[in-house]
Nucleic acid binder design. Structure first.
Lengths: 192, 192
DNA sequence: AAGTAATTTCAGTAATTTCTGAAAAAATTA
DNA sequence: TAATTTTTTCAGAAATTACTGAAATTACTT
């Protein structure tokens, strides 16, 4: 398959960015190609288009499926697997967020929780544990955000995305409204 | 410097996670060591503790400084550079977020914007451009979130982090309050 | 300015990751 | 079941990335 110049450029770019994103060049290129393609592609087509080996494509597709960024399907009257990416970019972003949480955050969170069960045995270790506690708390909050985002429906998510820096304003607004009685800010009502 | 078992485990873990985070093992270990250390360390100390070469530590520190995750300072009466990480984990997280945006998002955003200036020349390219437009829009929103978070003061940021899934509730609350007049939801007032 | 301590650079080597081609396995059809 | 098509596996080759030691540079002291 001959690619239009802009498509070609995008595919190559994704390949190069791959290393920054924790995937290799071929995996990046395969994803880009599938993302831009109107119709699902079979492995042979990807192989020809990218000019890499069939086995490399096979491994790349496997990895992309493990990230849940690519799905396979069958077309009637054709024995081959056809591959495609989800349509909705928001869905894609959520998947990416969750997979990265699993791979980049969870293992560390597990180690930190384990470690923090133990008692520090001297001054140095005590300070280290305090630092680990801080990191653990933060990672848990970030992790929770990630989980919570997965629960939202597309409408809510889209709104939240558009909100951006307006969130603190919203918080101030809430403060103003919920403190009408004149209570000082300190009382701990906040969460539910 | 002999490390306490839990500190040792954390340092090694960071080293292994490094490859998932886009840094190498030594860089990960150096960061972990500095993060847990009560006092700033000089390069020789890091070299001895980690058992890697002095030059490797030098390169690692340089990279961590390019990420703005490590700072150097001088102690009176000592010619050596001393290195440390910022105290505040929230500040660290913001720095990380911004650097990752710069490295992982901005280059692609630049390419997409350039490409989308051009006119697609056929059907296939037209579909591809629609997909690129979707990705571009999403990346711009994410990028804006990242920028906006940088502006918040620590208090606001901490509140936002704790909020999590309560945000949609807050949005619903806002809707209820701002539509008291009885207007239908469609009118575009939202942003300022 | 000369001498010393600390740091950086960089060419070469080591280690790791990516990729390929061939063979095996799995899936489908006859 | 045998033949055919498609996919996966995997050992070794190629490419890339990480690391070291030696030399050069920089920063400081006398």
């Amino acid at each position: 398959m001959k690619l239009a110049p802009s498509v070609q450029a995008f595919v190559l770019h994704f390949g190069e960015m791959g290393s920054r994103w924790g995937i290799n060049r071929t995996v990046g290129q395969i994803y880009a190609l599938l993302y831009l393609s109107k119709d699902p592609l079979h492995a042979e087509e990807i192989t020809d288009t990218l000019g890499v080996s069939r086995s490399n494509v096979s491994m790349g597709l496997k990895e992309l499926q493990s990230w849940r960024l690519v799905r396979s399907q069958h077309l009637p009257g054709d024995r081959r697997d056809y591959f495609s990416t989800p349509e909705d970019v928001l869905e894609i972003a959520l998947t990416l967020l969750e997979e990265r949480r699993k791979r980049e955050l969870d293992p560390t969170l597990t180690l930190l929780r384990q470690t923090l069960m133990e008692q520090p045995s001297d001054q140095v270790e005590e300070h280290a544990h305090e630092r680990m506690q801080q990191m653990c708390d933060l990672m848990e909050q970030v992790s929770r955000w990630s989980h919570d985002l997965q629960e939202l429906n597309p409408k809510e998510l889209q709104r939240l995305l558009l909100l951006g820096s307006a969130v603190p304003k919203l918080l101030k607004m809430k403060d103003t409204l919920t403190s009408v009685g004149g209570k000082k800010k300190k009382s701990g009502t906040g969460s539910d």
